[in-house]
Structures are given as structure tokens and as C-alpha cells.
Design a protein around this nucleic acid. Structure first.
Lengths: 351, 351
DNA sequence: GTGAAAGCGCTAACAG
DNA sequence: CTGTTAGCGCTTTCAC
């Protein structure tokens, strides 16, 4: 049965020998490249099957100068948004035979630089990155100098790399408009304070939405939490205890949404009767919550699709061509957590 | 300045040439192997710096038969537990120069088999896997036949691979005992219905705990939800509406915890005054919740440490040695969500 | 201590 | 259409 003591796994040599053809013919047959007699192709295929031959990936990579691997660098997979995006990218890219290296940068500049250069050293065919340090000059230039196809994800870097960014502004604007049409005027926004694009754009969209609907935005209606881990509970509790309490709150991210729900419940308020709530980002539980939470979300499958397309195109063209910048829409998903504000019966305001 | 048109990146040849030494000496100097004159070492180092030489990973892998890469296969990174574990493993293994390939199996047997064989083909130095299909014979034998160092994570596979498993039983037992000592007798358990080890063991631990404290466990006090995505809200709502409502509920996982919180709040109950709540698994928001949720948790850093240790040992010994099975403790973290049951004033029971 | 040479497993010219 | 040959970039005997 077996001809070798299994010391060395079978190589393409063995296949060629068994099929009675040369090395290169075996290679061609296996890779369906150029013309090979059907009969020979068949013989080689059989030999492959008999021997259980499996190509050596390192050798292929070395020779082809391609690892069929894509590197992903995100701040933290622990963030459900990134987890979902990763899953979607993996799903999309596996169809093309790619596997993914995932590195968490944990927002650390040194580390981001290191990861990026490891990706390069390891011959990634491409990378998808969302550097936490959008403004760190060393990080920015490391990204810029990458010599492999690169997609920058939702960052405002000035770069010649391909980018895919989310349309936060129009989404936020639409959400605010929806709320305005419901009759809300006192709308609060609660989000984490990151210096990055998403936060900036969301605030921008919020402001634009308020303005477009002829509403002023009091500075204390935009609450930026120090870090994404800090307690939104207290911030929201404070918000709800104000003399003039907002009739609607927009909160960003899974963690903050959770804590806001907690705070609203603790305050004895009902959604949407006493207060309307909408979320930026659409964690699974938002849909299953009772009532389900309205959100403004970005379709991660679409994002993944765009990243993949850009990357694959760039890879195939060997990096040639102008940088492309794709924008992915952000949609308002209306569910049951927003309603017309009550005529202040339960508001703290003195009527 | 530059001597080459940058068509080919600099290779170790270039380094050797610039340093005026042979290829092999350059290699030895770079890898700090065998004796090399300090002076030559210095010259080579300088050449490396000047040229910006970076080893070709594919070539190294081919030659060394080691990719310095570990493959991780989990059901779904979207599960916060796996996300945290991944992050911890990455953190631990990067110290040893490893990067990680992450593949989501999505609980699909075909896919698990495919992923595993890709890991093998791609010359992973080791893999850490938690197959969703613990009982699928093909998956099991694929794992068993892997020819690379393997750690099976918290599964009851009969295998000769190294394993690291969580001590669910003792943890659950301790949690139930804690609740019992608080005075609870009607304790419900809500978890997702997976056929896998964690679920089985948790139920086992729950039962053991009840028994040890002289409490009967009514069959309807263990609620298994069809899938982890199904609505725990309704299940818990039903639980709370029972004539004899449980005074304490233990719920498993982030999603179910969320929905349970939602259901309790919707039912107008207070934690821990009206009902005690404890969680299996410790999502970040459990700690930040008001009141903070008591949990039984496994320290993912410890798990990562064990996985890494096992894998590294196995890699260094070239796979030799008996399979090792490590158990990681599961701890009860007491926070504010459990209290002595009230004397049924708010219970549905007719007094 | 250092160099020459072989070869990891594979693909891609280049001949025939 | 197939075989011969030359490397990809690196590590590692084996001589010196």
C-alpha cells in the first residue's frame, strides 16, 4: 500500500513518478494550467488521490510570491462590530481560497506598526486595516509605505491606499430626521470619545440632522464618554435626571446601548412611552430586545464585499491603478423603540 | 544610495555581499546561531540595517518546516467568549513570534473538516480548535488524524490530542451552593441547547449543586433554548409568570443574559430585591451593570496560557510524549445581583 | 569560525 | 503537449 515510511510527506515528485510523467507535467495537470492531455490529467489525478498528495504551501508561496493569505488588523475583535466584519470578510474571501490572519492592535501605535510590518514580512497578499491611531504620524506613514495591496477601513487617513468608509453622516442625519418627524426636539447623543473618523462623522451627521430640521443642539446634548469602557450608565442617568430631559436618546455601540438600557430601566422609564431610544450599530440583541431597538447600521456583508473586491482587484492588477475610495451606505432600521414624545407628562420639566 | 532598481527586495545574498561574507555566515550571524566573530556579526548587522533587509518568510518556512503560525478554529468570533479567548491567545503567543490564523467554523461539519485540512496544508505549527461538532465522526477523526500539534478546547472528544477543558461542574456547583446559602430553593437554569460539553457539564454541575444542598430539581427549572439566537426573552418571561416563580435564575451567555435582563425589567421586577440573577460567562457589561451581575466565569487569560504552554511544549518536543489534559478552574464572582429571597411578598404564589 | 554546496517543494521558462 | 532545467530565499550539513 504505502511505499514510503511516511517520513517525508508525499511531494509532487512522488505524484509525477507514480503517474509516470515529469515533474512539470504533474504540476501543470494539478494546477489546470496550459494544455494537458485528458488522459494524463486523469493519471495525475489518480496518483494524487492514491498518494493523498497535498501541495506544500510554503513552497508554493515562495515560488508564486503569493501566500493566499490576507492580514486583518483591527483594534479589538472583542468589539462585536469587528467580530462581525471579520466573519463576513472571512466568508467572502474563502471563496477565493484565502485564509485570514487576524491581529488586534489594541489601539497601540507601536503595536500597529509592528503588526503591519509583520504582515508585510509574511508576504500577505493584501491587508485590511483600521488603525486605531488615525493621527499618529508613524502609523500613518507605515500604512502609506506598505508595499502590498491595502484597504483602509473607515479612517480619514490621507493616503494613496484604497479605502472603504461608512457613510455615517447621511445615516445619522436620516435618523435625526426620523426622530424630528416623530416630534422630538430634545435629542441627546451618547458616544465613546475616540479621536477617530466614525465618532467625528457621527457627530457631524447628528449636527447636520438637527440643523436640517431647524433644531438647535445644546452642547450638553452630545455626551462623549472618556473611553468605550467607561460607564455610560451614570452619564445616561444624569441625562435622564435633568430638568429638561431629552425625549430621545441616540447611543453608540453595544456597550453603551447596554448600559443605557440599564439606566433607563433603573430610572423607571419605559421605551418608547417615556423615552425614545435609537442605537448606532446593530448588535444582535437590539433586534431581539423588547421592544426592538431602532438603529442606524452599516451592512457588514456589504463592507466585506467591498473590501474583498477592492483587494482582489488590486491584487490581480499587481497594485497598478489609481486608489479607489468606496463609501458604504448606512441605513436607518426602524423598529419599535421610538415613538412620538408624550406631552411632557412624565418629563421632569415643570409645565 | 540604492543599488538596485528595487525590482527584487533585498535578500540575504545582498546582505552577505555588502558585509563581505558568505551567504551562510550572514545567515548564521542574523540568526545568532553557532559561533560568529563579534566583528562579523556587527558587519552583518550593519548591512542588514543599511539595506533594510527582512527575511522572506515563505523561504524560511519552507526551509525550516515551520511557519511560526498557529491556527485557531472556533465556532464564531462573534461570540464574545471566543473573541476574548482569541485576543488572549494572540497576546500570549506573539511573545514567541507567532501570528494567528482565525477561522470560524460556524458549526458546520464540512467546513470544520475543510478548515482543519487547510491548517495542515498551510503548515501551521499548531492548532487550537473547538469543533462545534463534537459528535460528528468525520470531524472527530479529522481532529484525531491531524499531524500537527493540536489543542482541543473544552470538548469531550476521545482523542490523543492535548486538551484544555473548563471545570464547569465545580463552578456551577459552587454557584448553586452560594445561592442555596442565600436561602434560595427555586433556582432556574436557562441555557442554549448545544450538544456540546460546556452545556452538558453546566447542567451536570447545576444538578450536583442542587443535590448537594438537598434541593430537588424540577425538570421545568432547566430551560434549554433551541439555538443560542432564539428568544430567551419569552422563555424567561414565561418563567417569571409561573405560579411558582423561581427566586433565582442562572443564565448562560451574553445573549441570554441580555434578554433575561430585558425580561426581568419588562416584568417590573427588581434585581436582586425581587429576583436574584447570576450569569454563566462574564461579558464586560455584567461588571458594569447596575447592580453588577454575579457570574461564574473562566479566566480566559489562564486558558490562553494553558493552550500556549501545551502547544509550545508539543512543538518543541516535535510532537513526542503522552497527551496532556489540563483543566482550568471556573470561579464564582460575587457581585450585587443576588440576595436572600424575599418572603414571597412579590411572588406569584398564593400565600 | 567561515565558506561552498545542497536542497526544502514547487512553478515557469524554454526547448523539443 | 511534455520534459529539462533553473531557480524562488533561506538554512544547514560538511569541509576547510
Amino acid at each position: 500500500m504505502s511505499r514510503k515510511p511516511d517520513s517525508r510527506p508525499v511531494s509532487i515528485r512522488d505524484v509525477a513518478a507514480l503517474a509516470g510523467v515529469s515533474l512539470s507535467t504533474a504540476s501543470r495537470a494539478i494546477n489546470n494550467v496550459s494544455n494537458v492531455t485528458p488522459e494524463i490529467r486523469e493519471r495525475v489525478a489518480r496518483a494524487v488521490a492514491v498518494l493523498g498528495y497535498r501541495p506544500n504551501h510554503a513552497a508554493q508561496s515562495l515560488r508564486r510570491r503569493s501566500s493566499r493569505t490576507i492580514g486583518c488588523m483591527f483594534t479589538d475583535v472583542t468589539n462585536p462590530l469587528y467580530a462581525r466584519l471579520y466573519r463576513a470578510i472571512e466568508e467572502r474571501l474563502r471563496n477565493d481560497g484565502y485564509m485570514l490572519l487576524l491581529a488586534n492592535s489594541l489601539n497601540n501605535a507601536e503595536r500597529e506598526i509592528e503588526i503591519l510590518s509583520m504582515f508585510e514580512d509574511r508576504g500577505m497578499d493584501g491587508v485590511i486595516v483600521a488603525p486605531g491611531n488615525e493621527h499618529d504620524q508613524r502609523v500613518v506613514s507605515t500604512v502609506e509605505n506598505l508595499k502590498i495591496p491595502t484597504v483602509v477601513l473607515d479612517r480619514d487617513l490621507t493616503t494613496t491606499k484604497d479605502k472603504v468608509s461608512f457613510e455615517h453622516v447621511s445615516g445619522m442625519k436620516a435618523l435625526v430626521t426620523y426622530l424630528a418627524e416623530l416630534g422630538h426636539r430634545d435629542i441627546a447623543l451618547v458616544l465613546a470619545h475616540t479621536g477617530n473618523r466614525p465618532t467625528r462623522r457621527r457627530i457631524e451627521g447628528f449636527r447636520a440632522g438637527m440643523k436640517a430640521n431647524g433644531m438647535p443642539v445644546a452642547s450638553d446634548m452630545i455626551v462623549q464618554l472618556p473611553t468605550s469602557m467607561s460607564s455610560a450608565f451614570h452619564a445616561v442617568t444624569e441625562l435622564l435626571a435633568r430638568n429638561r430631559r431629552p425625549s430621545a436618546v441616540i447611543v453608540q455601540g453595544t456597550t453603551i446601548l447596554n448600559e443605557t438600557l440599564n439606566a433607563i430601566s433603573a430610572a423607571g422609564l419605559r421605551i418608547p412611552d417615556d423615552i425614545s431610544l435609537a442605537s448606532i450599530g446593530d448588535p444582535d440583541f437590539a433586534r431581539n430586545h423588547v421592544p426592538p431597538i431602532s438603529t442606524v447600521r452599516t451592512d457588514m456583508e456589504a463592507v466585506a464585499e467591498q473590501c474583498a473586491k477592492l483587494l482582489l482587484t488590486r491584487i490581480r492588477s499587481d497594485g497598478a491603478g489609481e486608489p479607489v475610495c468606496v463609501r458604504v451606505a448606512t441605513d436607518v432600521i426602524i423598529r419599535g423603540s421610538c415613538a412620538a414624545p408624550t406631552k411632557h407628562p412624565s418629563r421632569n420639566t415643570v409645565v
